[in-house]
Each structure stands twice: as structure tokens, then as C-alpha cells.
Design a protein around this nucleic acid. Sequence first.
DNA 1: TTTACAAATGAAAGCGCTTTCATTTGCATT
DNA 2: AATGCAAATGAAAGCGCTTTCATTTGTAAA
Lengths: 334, 334
Amino acid sequence: MVTIYEVSKAAGVSLATVSRVMNGNVKVSDRTRQKVLKAMAELGYKPNSIAQSLASNRSNSVGLLVSALHGSFFGNMMSTVEDVLRKAGKHVVITAGHSDEQQEKNAIEFLLDRRCDALILHAEAVSDEYLLELSQCDVEVVLINRRIEQMAERCFYTDNELGGYLATKAAIDKGHRDIAYISGPLFKQDAKERLEGHKRALREANITFDPELMVEGGFHEEEGAQGYLQLTAVNKPFTALICANDEMASGAMTAARERGVRIPEQLSVVGFDDVLFARYLYPKLTTIDNPIQKMGNGAALWVLEHVYKDKKSRHHTNLFAPKLIVRDSLVAPE
Amino acid sequence: MVTIYEVSKAAGVSLATVSRVMNGNVKVSDRTRQKVLKAMAELGYKPNSIAQSLASNRSNSVGLLVSALHGSFFGNMMSTVEDVLRKAGKHVVITAGHSDEQQEKNAIEFLLDRRCDALILHAEAVSDEYLLELSQCDVEVVLINRRIEQMAERCFYTDNELGGYLATKAAIDKGHRDIAYISGPLFKQDAKERLEGHKRALREANITFDPELMVEGGFHEEEGAQGYLQLTAVNKPFTALICANDEMASGAMTAARERGVRIPEQLSVVGFDDVLFARYLYPKLTTIDNPIQKMGNGAALWVLEHVYKDKKSRHHTNLFAPKLIVRDSLVAPE
DNA sequence: TTTACAAATGAAAGCGCTTTCATTTGCATT
DNA sequence: AATGCAAATGAAAGCGCTTTCATTTGTAAA
């Protein structure tokens, strides 16, 4: 491997000068720069990023924590983050937290050990206090899909309340009045907010929220199926079912169909997230677009701007608005 | 940050000794080891992985190239690879090649610049020659889902021919005789092999392969839909449709349904890969399990064993056998 | 006790860069 | 030509480790 030393010799300048033309932060005369660039090209020089990191105390790497590497929900976000950062020459170390407190902490620890310059976290299980403490360390921390007041400008999140509202509103607009709801786990902020939105939509339409038409699930498919069964068990008819995410909507649809219910004719279903497979479902799922990739983009730009002082990368907003995606699973009641 | 120097002072030993207890490759007397470990614990010492890398000429990082970060096909593999390697304290740098030659080369270049100790590549667009040349460099290269004779022991792949055979065989076993096939792009090895398997199954059942009942797609959903339309255009009836992957199966099913064809009663469909959403489709897709995560596991273990000399991590096989996943989309013809 | 040899430890030279600080160069002004 | 000052460059000290090689220590045999 050719080193900076050989370049400096070939170009007849000092190490410092070569370093300067590489980094471009200090003025170098044009004549010198050309000599150096020529030498680099001729020797096929590639800077050793590890040595750069050690000397500059910058690893040029960003840690990304997601709940799971598989599953459509995170795929797009990872994709966006990786894309933005790699184009800027940074690299992304991805870890999975599996929505488990200890595993999330381990993963963060790992990223810290790796001397990441910044962490982009989709942390679900870890407490606000832990994250606040973490942000006191010398890494920059930004949060995705979560909002903590004290670090609000580093949080990138969906307006979940609005999303929940839009989902239920869509059903109401179609003429539904008996609307059931399968919630996400209410210890999670986003699940709670979506439910709030649901309630607001009901209130605006003068429909009383009926606790018996609501069950709490865990965001997984099985719980959608279970939830549906629980809801039918109380013997209060409903013509529309709003689910706090697409997985549960899928489970509920399957369960309903197995019981001979025709969808959407006898039961309309609305999901949330618009993950990839939403359009593979039958009928294609009407859902709420959760702009997770935009959040990833925002977070990556924030990092470039604030950590790497990249002037061009300006992020513009922290709050992303969800919107209704109209497909086939929501129709007017019979 | 506390450095090795402070630890050595606190423990009253030299830098070298501290380094030795960390790495454990050279004998250190028990008494000394205890002193050092105590000092480390008390100071809360964390080795600086970047300095380690520079000094040892080992980055302890493994580059992983996939076609896309999103999509279910790669999710499981990334998940497995990350898991195995992180548990061994290595980190994974993930990049996406988007099935494009130039992008794949760029990504590999990036990983090389990052001084990865090994590369795990799911490279689709780059030539065999390029990969062979790459494997001459001082990184260790292993391939996923691809086989190159000259580096066979570093290749981890599915028996695609067998998979293709099993898919078609399953249809034949149900009594189908008129079987159409939507292939993947035939410049890709795996697509070609799957088609071979299809032909073998037909041959064994004394069914003549009819080129008109075969179209070549690009592994994407739309091409499944287009493919179906093309197949129906030739006016040769078929009762079963084998698709070279699940995406195209989904597309074909949608297209068929839109034309009023009942699935599986009027048309049986078999996919390939068993990606996550296969079970979300309606009807649930009968398909071939493509053990991509096992390949990821095998590749990761290989790296641990050969690059990091981890004795415990023995991989066992390079060739993975696919198997039939029976669900609802394949039934006997009417 | 002396000797021999292996085991344990330490001193110090890197690894390939960045960056500070001192020095030199170039250029406009007197 | 002499002066002053900013711009450009170079020398060298790290960054926090690993590893080689030399030295010291411990142990068993003579």
C-alpha cells in the first residue's frame, strides 16, 4: 500500500502539504496542489481511513440502530441513511436492538466502542433518561421515530396523532359509524398517539369512543388476528377496523376471512405504516403512509450538517406528516 | 478517554503487558493479569478500536454488499451476518449495489478503502473475472448466492436447479400437465439454473418443454404481471404457473385475478424464495424456500474461521438445499 | 551455588495519518 | 533595495495501540 510518505517524496513536498491537499481545509498554492495530485494519481494513492481516524479523532462512521434488519419498515430507512452518508464518504455501522432494552443498550455500547462520530437511533425499549444521558457523551445522538422534549431538534418523527386521526377519519368519511380499533402496545409513544388521533376523529364525528371496541396488540401479525377475535367476541357489530400498523391489519384480515367475512364488503380495514407488503395484501390495504425514509433522510442530513459541518446538507424539518394511502380495503359500509 | 497508558501506570506494568492481557495471545502470569484487569475495571478502560486497527493492520470490520437494503430477501441475510459477526466483536459495514455493475464496483471500492478484513458479497452485476481479480487482493472475499469454480470453497449458494425442479415437480405431482414458467433474467446464473430444474422436472414427467409457455422476466413484480399477460396471449391454456421468484408470482397473481381468474382453483401458482410477504399474499403462496439466511450464516462463519482464526466457528457446507413450502396457491387442476 | 533455558516482562519502534508551531516564501509598499 | 506582512510550507510531535527484540525473572538440573 502506498502511503502519504511516498506521495510526499514523489511530489517533493512535506507530509503536511499532502495532507492539506487531501483535506482541502487549508490553502495550498495551485502549483503545489497540482504536483501532489499528480503524484497521488501516478502512485494510485488511497488514504488509509483508519490512520486518518486515529490522527483526527474522527472515525467518519455513523452508528445506526434499528429494531430489526429485516422487515420492510426499516429497510427503506436504512437504505436512505446509507445512501446519504456514503455519498458523503461516511460509513454506516448498522446494529439491531430487537425492541429489547438490554439488546438496545448492548448495541449502543458496541457503536460507542467503535468510536462512531454520531448515532442515529431508532430505540424503542430504552428510557428517555438513558438517551438524555447518552446525549451528554461526546457522540452526537439523533433519534428517529421518537420525540424527547429536551432534545427536540435532534428528533425526527411522524405526527402519529394526525396519522391515527386520518385513518379513522377516512372510515368515517366513507360512512362508517361502528369502528373498532386494534392499538399498538400503549407503552410505546407512537401507539399512544395514534390512539389519540383515533379518538379525536371519533369525537369530531360525535361518535362515542367505546373501550370494548378497542384492543391493545403488540404490533405483530398474530396480535392482529387475536385482536380481531377478541373484538368479535364482545358481540358489538362493527363495519370498519382500524389497525395501528399494517402487520396487525394483515393478521386481522386473515382471521376475518377465515371466519367467512368478506373484505372489504362486510368489513373495511385500514392499516398504518404503508410497509412494502401492504400492496401485496388482498385486498390491497388502505393505510397511512409513515414517512420513515424521510425521517432517515432528515437524520442523515442533520448529522452531515452538525457533525461533519457539511454546509450543503441542510435538513428542514423534524416533524413529518403522514398521509392516507387509498387502496382497496376501505369502502362504504353495506 | 482512558488509554492503555493510564492502565499500565495504574497496574504498574508496561504497555506491552496490558496489550497482552487484552489480546490474550501471549502468556501473562496470573498475578500480573489480575493486576491489569483490576486496573482496567477501576478506570473503566475501553480499548480504542481505531488505534488497535492501525497498529495491528486489522480493521475488525467486514464489508457486506447486498443488492438492496430494503426488501425481504436480504433482510434475513443481513440480520444473520450482523448477528454472528457482532457477537464476535467484528463490525459489519453494509453497502448496496442495486444490481448495477458500476454501483457494485463503487461499493466494493468503498469497502476496500475502509480497509475491511473481509468482504461478503452478494454481487449480481459484476463479472467473474472482476471477482477473481479482487480475491487476489489482500482482502478475503466470499460470495453469496453465486458460484465461481476457481473459488468454490468461498462460495455459498443454493442448489437453484434443484429448487426449480422441486417447484415444477410439485405442480406435476398435483396432476398439472400444462405448466407455464416465468423465468428470471437469464444472464443471471440462478435464473438459468432454476429454469434448468424446471425443464428436468418436465422431462422426467414426459412433458415436452414448450418455449411458448415460458417468458423471461426481470425478477420484479411488474414483470410477473406482464409475463402472465404474454403467456395468455399465445392462447395455449395452462393450469399452473411457476415463477422464478415470489415478486413475479405476486405480480402474476394480481394480473390473473384482475382478468377474473380464480386462484388457485383455475390457476395454481408457485413462487421461489419464500420471502417474508409470501405468506401475506392471498392465497398464501406455495413456494420454494431459498435459504439465504443460512448462506449468510455460512459466509459469516467462514470469515470468522479463516480471517479471524476463530476455532469454534466451523462452517459445514457451501451448497444449501432449497425445499418446497406448501401453502395455498397450488392445488390439483379442476 | 552455579548454570542453562524457558517463561514473563519491558523498551521502543512503528502503524499512516493530522495538526500545531515555526520558518520560509512571495509580494506589495516604502 | 529595504521593509513588512500575509500566505504557503515544513518539521515534528502526537493519536493509542501492537509487536519485535532485548532483558529480566523463575525454575530445574548439574
